[in-house]
Design a protein around this nucleic acid. Structure first.
Lengths: 221, 221
DNA sequence: AAATCGATCTGGACAGTGTGAGTTTGGCGG
DNA sequence: CCGCCAAACTCACACTGTCCAGATCGATTT
C-alpha cells in the first residue's frame, strides 16, 4: 500500500543526510532497535538498497545516527547550562555547576530516551556484529562536542577554585561519568516507573554524594 | 543440514527449563540479541513453535533468561565477597566491604558482558514492544537474590559502624547503585578497549570518591 | 483394561528484516 | 549530441517472530 511517491528527481541529491535525519527521528521515537534500514528508506522515499551506496551496512548508519544524537545531547546540555543562574560564591558556583551538568545529563536521558540509548552504543550486541568495527577513516568522524567535554569543563572549574587537586581530575572525571551515566541507566531501564519526585531525589542525593566525595579527595593520602 | 536428531520421547519432559538453559547460554555468548527463538529451539532439539507452549512470546523467554542471569550475578558476587579478607578495624572493614561489592558488580559485568546486558533489561526497545509488560502473576517471579540486596547489606553494615546515618541509607543506595552500574556500562560499551590497568584505576578511584562522599553525608545539613 | 481428553510438540505459512548481485536511470563532461 | 558512471532500482535469498491447523502421546476416566 504505502507507495513511494515517485520522487521528482531520480537522483535524490543528498541522500546520506536525509537517511541520517530519518534515522535520528526513528531513534528518537523508538530507540536504536527502531532504526530499521527498510523503514528509513521508506521514510525518505527511496528503495531499501539505495542506502547501501552511502553506508556499508545498517550498523554504519546507526553509528552515524549515534554521532548526531551525541551532538544533540551536548547541545541541549549546554543550552540548559547557559540558562542556569549560579550562586555568587565562586566555590559554591563551581559545585553547583557540576551538579547542573549531571542534572542536564540525566534530564536529557529521560527526555529523549530513544536518542540517549542510541547514542550510548544502543545495540548491546557488542561482539560478533559483523562490520561493527570502529573505522577512524569514517567521514562521519567529525569533531563533535561530546558530552564528556562538558563534564571535563565543569571539573576544570572545580580545580580553579581549589576544590580539587589538578592531579586528581583524571580520577574525578570517571567518578562523575559513572554517577550520571549510572543514574540515567537506572532511571531509564531498571526503574522506569519511579515517580518523578523519587527520581529527582535520587539524582540530587547521588550528586550530593559525588560532590562531597570529590571535594574530600585531596584530604586523603 | 542441521537436522533435529529425532528425540526419543515425543514429549520433552521439561522443555521450559531446557529452553531457559539454552537461552542463558546464548545470552552468555552473544548478549540479549543472540537469544533468538529459533536458535534456542534448535539447540534444545525441538521445533521452533514448541516454545510457544511455555512462553507467550520471545520477550517472555528473554525475561526468564534475565531473571536467571540476575541470580547468577548475585551468586557470583556473594561468592567473591565470601573469599574477601576484611581489615581488622570494623570501620575500615565496612568501607572495604562496600568497595568489594562494587568491584564484584563491575567484575561480573566485565567477565560476563552478555549475561550482564541481558539481566539489565538488555533490549533497549523499551516502549512499544508488545507483550513486554511486567506480569506479577508470572510463575517465573521467584524470590531471587538480586544484586541490589547485596548492596543494601553492605550499606546496612556501614550504618552499624556509625559511618552513615540510618535515615540516609535510602539516598545512599541510589548513589552506590549509580556508581557501579555506571562504571559497568561505561567500561563495557563506552570505552571497551580501555587497558586493564586503566579500568582498575577507574573503578578504584570512583569507589574511593563514593565512600568518601557517603561517609561525609551526615556532616551536612 | 480400553477409550477418551487435553496438554505438548510439529508442519506449513506469512509478513518483515538485512544484505548480495545485476540492471536501469539520468545528470554531467566530452 | 553522445557516452559514462555513479546513484538508485529490481530481484532474490536466508533469516527472523508469530499464527493456525493438525499430529502425537501421557494421564485420567469409565
Amino acid at each position: 500500500m504505502e507507495q513511494r511517491p515517485k520522487r521528482a528527481t531520480y537522483h535524490h541529491g543528498d541522500l546520506r543526510a536525509a537517511l541520517v535525519d530519518a534515522g535520528v527521528e526513528l531513534a528518537r521515537a523508538g530507540g536504536p532497535t527502531a532504526v530499521v534500514l527498510r523503514e528509513v528508506a521508506r521514510v525518505v522515499g527511496v528503495a531499501p538498497n539505495s542506502a547501501y551506496g552511502h553506508f556499508k551496512t545498517l550498523g554504519a548508519l546507526k553509528r552515524a545516527v549515534a554521532q548526531r544524537a551525541l551532538r544533540e545531547m551536548a547541545a541541549v546540555m549546554i543550552a540548559q547550562l547557559d540558562a542556569f543562574e549560579e550562586p555568587a560564591d565562586p566555590v559554591e558556583a563551581a559545585k553547583a555547576h557540576l551538579c547542573e551538568v549531571g542534572r542536564a545529563y540525566v534530564r536529557f536521558a529521560l527526555d529523549e530516551p530513544g536518542l540517549f540509548a542510541t547514542a550510548m552504543g544502543g545495540d548491546p550486541a557488542g561482539t560478533k556484529t559483523p562490520g561493527f568495527v570502529e573505522d577512524p577513516a569514517d567521514p562521519t568522524y567529525e569533531d563533535r562536542p561530546k558530552p564528556d567535554s562538558v563534564v571535563l569543563g565543569a571539573l576544570h572549574r572545580l580545580t580553579e577554585v581549589g576544590c580539587l587537586a589538578p592531579g586528581r581530575v583524571e580520577a574525578a572525571v570517571m567518578a562523575c561519568w559513572a554517577t550520571v551515566h549510572g543514574l540515567a541507566g537506572i532511571l531509564l531501564t531498571l526503574q522506569p516507573d519511579l515517580p518523578e519526585a523519587a527520581r529527582n531525589a535520587a539524582v540530587d542525593s547521588s550528586l550530593e554524594v559525588l560532590v562531597l566525595g570529590l571535594t574530600s579527595l585531596d584530604r586523603q593520602p
